[in-house]
Every structure is written in C-alpha cells, then in structure tokens.
C-alpha cells in the first residue's frame, strides 16, 4: 500500500504539486493522468524520491519512504521510463541484472532471474541475453526496460509514460502483456500517462491531476459517471463516454448464455472492441471463446448497449 499524505512540491516558489493525498491499494494498477505540466510525473518521482517533496510524507506499507537512503529505496521500487532508458553499452542480460548486481545477489540467482524474466516477456533467452539494446526493436527494448525494472522483485513498479514511444499496434500488445504480468506477479503499479485510452484500458483506479492538484481519484466508471470538474469531463471527452465505459471491462464480463453465429471473440478483448466487431460484422450477437477455445456464451448488441448507457 502506498499512502501519499499531503505532498507538496515547489520549485523557486512555483507550486508543481499541491497538497496531494491519495492511497494506492496493493496489487492494483493506478494510472495518473493529466496534461503536461500538471505535476503527474513529479508526483510519481516523489514516490521513489527522485524528487524530494517540499512538504508531506509518503508511506510504503506504513514505512516513511525517507527511513532509508534514496538509492536503497529506489532499488526496492521498480522504475520504467519512456524510451526504455536501457544502457547502450551493456547487453540485455546485463541491463536486466543491474539492480540484482547492486543488491549483491549471487551469480546463479541473477542468471536464473534474467532467464525467467526474458521468458516471461517472450524474449528467447538464448537469442536475446547477449544482444545489445540497439539490436532490438522498439517493442523489445521496452519489454527489456520493464523486465529490468522488475528484476529485483519489487512490490511496487513506477512507470513514466512507458509506452509513449511505441507505435499503436505494439503499444496495445505491450499494455496487454503488462496487465497479464501484473496479475501474475501481483505487483502494485503506478503509471503516468496522458493517453486516456491507455488509462481506461489499464487502470483499476485513475487519478486526474490538473495544475498540480489531484482533482479526482476513483474507479474509471466513477470518472465517467460523475466527473468532479469540467476538466475531468473534457479529458474523458463527452462523446467518448459510452465507449470509455465499455473499454473498462472485457467481453468475458459481458457474456450471456445462448448461441451465436460467426467468428468467436476472445474473452480477453474489451467490450468496446467486441461492440466494434458486432457493428462491423452486422450481427446482433457473436460467440465468446475462452483462451482454450471453449465457447463461454455470447455477447449481444443489446447487452453491450445496456452496459454503455449512463450508470444509474
């Protein structure tokens, strides 16, 4: 659990983050959104003390984050940034092993961890361990960057626009992979982005920052239903509201019993994508299949329309 308690940051009298308090539940994905200059990145960087707050405190599982030197704190917290930040003179394996080496793990344990992470991120250890970052594609570099952040098995992973430099197709895949890995490892993720689609896709809870203040912090559906300010409403986009709602949950969550014709949808696709597929195929219902191929039921145009309506 991360408790942010009355955090303020001023640079030369200019308040960048103003008295922000929020509690981030363990094993969840929290996305901080806002326009540039809203203070979202500064807030994130105060959690691992890359930036020291002017006032307030941040507690990780009850302990003040100033109870140890900053570099020790940062070794316990994963950190991934836009453009991956890999060390160009070190191989993929050496990059991933950075924090374990700093922590003094033995070689066998480090090697095992590197192999495990490469496999987890669908990079063949035999082929990739000894390559240099520039020999990888953008998507692969980004995965190695996240793997490096997770190498010391941190409970918390901070991500600063981690997918910002990826093209849309690779970005969607990277987001799906991140969610799968988050579920597998149970890591608490705090992610900063300005991309609302990304926020709705990934977040358990969304924090909206505007001019240094936290203007709303809640579940994605709450933001759509009850935007706290006009700014939140603009950010979500009035015409986007039904689709935002549908993008929160998956087709698996909207399954109804009954038969349907046509190409089955995967249960992991968002309801928004399911609706799109229904509209495009011109059908009123499509079957939904589990990952092993068994048909779970169907999604219907009518059912999704109901879910997209303003919550009562």
């Amino acid at each position: 659990m991360i408790e942010i308690d009355g955090i303020t940051k001023r640079y030369d009298g200019i308040t960048v983050v103003n008295n922000v308090s929020m509690t981030i539940e363990p094993r969840t994905v929290t996305v901080i959104v806002g326009t540039s200059g809203s203070g979202k990145t500064t807030l994130l960087r105060m959690i691992n003390r890359l930036v020291e707050p002017t006032a307030g405190a941040i507690r990780l599982d009850g302990d003040d984050n100033r109870s140890m030197p900053g570099f020790e704190l940062r070794r316990r917290i994963g950190y991934a940034i836009q453009g991956h930040g890999l060390f160009p003179h070190r191989t993929v394996a050496q990059n991933i092993a950075t924090v374990p080496v700093l922590l003094g793990w033995n070689k066998a344990r480090i090697d095992a961890k590197v192999t495990e992470l490469l496999t987890l991120f669908q990079l063949d250890p035999a082929a990739f361990a000894n390559r240099f970052p520039h020999e990888l594609s953008g998507g692969q570099q980004q995965r190695v960057g996240v793997a490096r952040a997770l190498a010391a098995e941190p409970n918390v992973l901070l991500m600063d626009e981690p997918f910002g430099a990826l093209d849309p197709i690779i970005r969607a895949k990277a987001q799906a992979d991140l969610l799968a890995i988050q579920r597998l490892l149970g890591t608490t993720i705090v992610l900063v982005t300005h991309d609302m689609d990304e926020a709705f896709h990934l977040a358990h809870k969304i924090a909206v920052m505007d001019k240094g203040a936290l203007v709303q912090y809640g579940r994605p559906a709450e933001l759509v239903k009850d935007p706290a300010t006009a700014f939140v409403q603009t950010l979500i986009g009035t015409s986007e509201r039904p689709f935002r709602l549908l993008s929160i949950e998956t087709a698996g969550d909207a399954v109804e019993p009954g038969p349907a014709e046509g190409q089955p949808l995967a249960e992991t696709v968002s309801q928004r994508d399911a609706l799109s597929e229904l509209l495009w195929s011109g059908r009123a219902a499509l079957p939904v299949a589990a990952t092993d191929g068994t048909i779970l039921g169907r999604v219907t145009l009518e059912g999704l329309t109901r879910r997209a309506a303003k919550p009562q």
Binding site: N48, E72, G85, F87, T98
Partner: peptide, 27 residues
C-alpha cells in the same frame, strides 16, 4: 551520455558514484 540512460540509472537505485563509473564513464 543519453539522458534516458542517466535517468534510468538514478531511477533504479545507482548511487552517483556507481552511475559515474558504471554508465557515464564507459559511454
């Protein structure tokens, strides 16, 4: 030295000295 590499080095817990000898100097 690429800004991101420096930033990442700090972010994952290298001390200033480790960053200097491990990242900045070799590059």
């Amino acid at each position: 030295v690429p800004r991101e590499a420096n930033e990442a080095a700090r972010g994952i817990g290298m001390t200033d000295r480790q960053r200097l000898f491990g990242i900045e100097f070799p590059l």
